[in-house]
Design a protein around this nucleic acid. Structure first.
Length: 285
DNA sequence: CCTTGTGTTCTCCG
DNA sequence: CCGGAGAACACAAG
């Protein structure tokens, strides 16, 4: 489940690896989810180079020449794995979900670069997609996203504005991409734990101290998660095919029924905003 | 039945 | 009766 830290890790790594490289060919399988017919899609990609690699929320943006943009959303199980020319990637860990050799049955698209390198888009569940847009459509897409937690516009004032007049739970706000971009289920729960606030609390009854704590918690959790190269719960891999290391630092997500690392009480799982939510009933108020 | 992210539809409230 | 907000539902597929 790639969220902001995972997508950002992939973006930063791919920038180092494939920036300004030219695409010789793109191979799409029948199961690839793209926003036009395959022939047209390939035509728009072929012989283009990656001018820049950006991100909005959980979407990776490959900037192509002539103001075209390739948007990639990994959704639940998507991976973007880069392989240098003629080299078989190691696969990182001995996890049976990680293929030792690509392409495999879950490879939906292969970008063949002129230097022999390959960029594979793998996606077991086929929820992820590739989409080519022009500048106008890119701006429409960008308008769907709120403040970016790691950028200059994520100020306390803007965060307060995002919560203003809302009559819903913290969890719903954190998951709402129109308000705050890139936070998903893992980092929403982790941020609430760090802020010592229950995800089910309504935002309109938070004190200003609590809002400040939550604001700092989001930044701190996401920053540390990027330092540790993201969370691999099951499918996430970086562009080398390696797992992320943040799972060791998770305090609540995926730990329902286990002991709170801070107070020792049992972590509880409930449903908030339609999503599984884990919290500590004694640490979080 | 579950999983998550997101788009759509429904419902409620002032 | 309306607009808007938020909740609920639908969908992707294994």
């Amino acid at each position: 489940m790639p969220e902001l830290p995972e997508v950002e890790t992939i973006r930063q790594d791919l920038r180092k690896k494939i920036l300004h490289k030219k695409i010789k060919n793109l191979k799409l399988t029948q199961k690839a989810r793209v926003n036009m017919n395959h022939l047209d899609f390939v035509k728009l990609i072929k012989n283009k180079e990656f001018e820049e690699i950006d991100r909005i929320g959980k979407i990776i943006i490959f900037v192509l020449p002539a103001k075209k943009f390739l948007l990639v959303h990994l959704k639940m199980t998507g991976q973007l794995i880069y392989e240098r020319g003629r080299q078989i990637i190691g696969g990182g860990h001995s996890d049976n979900q990680m293929p030792s050799k690509l392409p495999d049955q879950f490879t939906r698209a292969t970008f063949e670069l002129v230097d022999g390198g390959k960029l594979y888009f793998n996606d077991m569940r086929r929820f992820g997609y590739l989409k080519i847009v022009d500048e106008k459509e890119l701006n429409i897409e960008k308008a769907k996203y709120g403040i970016e937690p790691l950028q200059a516009n994520f100020t306390l004032a803007n965060f307060k504005k995002a919560l203003q007049n809302r009559k819903t739970t913290i969890k719903a706000v954190l998951l709402n991409q129109k308000l705050i971009a890139g936070v998903g289920n893992i980092y929403a729960d982790e941020s609430c734990f760090l802020a010592e606030i229950r995800p089910s609390r309504r935002v309109d009854i938070l004190s200003s101290t609590e809002i400040e704590k939550l604001y700092s918690a989001i930044k701190s959790v996401l920053k540390k998660a990027i330092e540790k190269r993201g969370t691999t719960f099951n499918h996430y891999r970086d562009s080398d095919g390696n797992t992320g290391n943040f799972i060791k630092y998770l305090k609540v997500y995926g730990r329902s029924g286990e002991k709170c690392k801070k107070c020792g009480n049992t972590l509880k799982k409930i449903k908030v905003a339609g999503r599984g939510t884990v919290y500590c009933p004694s640490c979080q108020k």
